[in-house]
């Protein structure tokens, strides 16, 4: 239906919707994040859930302690190489359709510890990330902004065809390999299906 016609109808007191919109409206307002904090960003995440910032306004107040009941993983903080296998394992155990917010510089790229020997340079090396929030740590407003961005992303997902949610796509991978804690680095150092090494050695530079 034409969007302008829809707005015109709504002005007249007639609500027109599609099953897809209704379905996505329900999905985006019932995201259950996992109660899982890694570092200082987790403190901001906790603040976001508390009364002042109140993530409950967006339908995400139920932080679940079990990955089996959660569908949003907020990677809140530095992912060390020792912790990375556990993060990927938890992601694998979450209910479909699941989403990931990489919160803060560390979860995005390793942040201030990027040059460190023991810090994973971004959780997107192993699991697909939906929303990145820069910051060190990001303020609760930034997390809410990311959450709204995720809600918009969910609302825009078609239920059929290209770009449909992973749980409706039988071919979408359900299991992401858990890296092992190797002798020098994690094995494998990245999941090639979700992450590609950036071009850093470009000729002439």
């Amino acid at each position: 239906m034409d969007n302008r016609l829809k707005i015109e109808l709504e002005r007249q007191g007639i609500v027109a919707t599609t099953l897809q919109e209704l379905y996505n409206w329900g999905r985006k307002n019932s995201v259950w994040p996992m109660q899982f904090g890694l570092a200082c960003c987790a403190i901001e995440m906790i603040a976001t859930t508390m009364a002042r910032y109140d993530l409950a306004r967006f339908g995400a107040e139920v932080f679940r302690s079990s990955p089996r009941q959660a569908d949003l993983l907020i990677v809140s903080g530095t992912v060390t190489k020792k912790m990375a296998p556990q993060v990927v394992r938890l992601y694998n155990q979450m209910a479909e359709p699941r989403y990931v917010i990489a919160m803060g510089a560390c979860a995005i790229s390793g942040g201030p510890f990027k040059q460190g020997y023991n810090v994973l340079k971004g959780i997107d090396r192993y699991i697909p990330v939906d929303v990145y929030i820069p910051g060190c740590p990001p303020r609760p407003e930034a997390l809410i902004e990311a959450f709204i961005a995720l809600q918009k992303k969910i609302a825009a997902q078609p239920l059929t065809g290209e770009g449909r949610p992973r749980h409706l796509d039988a071919d979408a991978p359900g299991e992401f390999p858990v890296p092992a804690f190797g002798e020098h680095d994690l094995e494998p150092p990245a999941n090639e299906s979700v992450w590609h090494a950036p071009l850093t050695q470009i000729q002439g530079t």
């Binding site: 749980h167 039988a170 359900g174 299991e175 858990v178």
Partner: peptide, 9 residues
């Protein structure tokens, strides 16, 4: 909500 099981889950 078709199930999407894996060995870890």
């Amino acid at each position: 909500s078709p199930p999407k099981p894996n060995s870890i889950k």
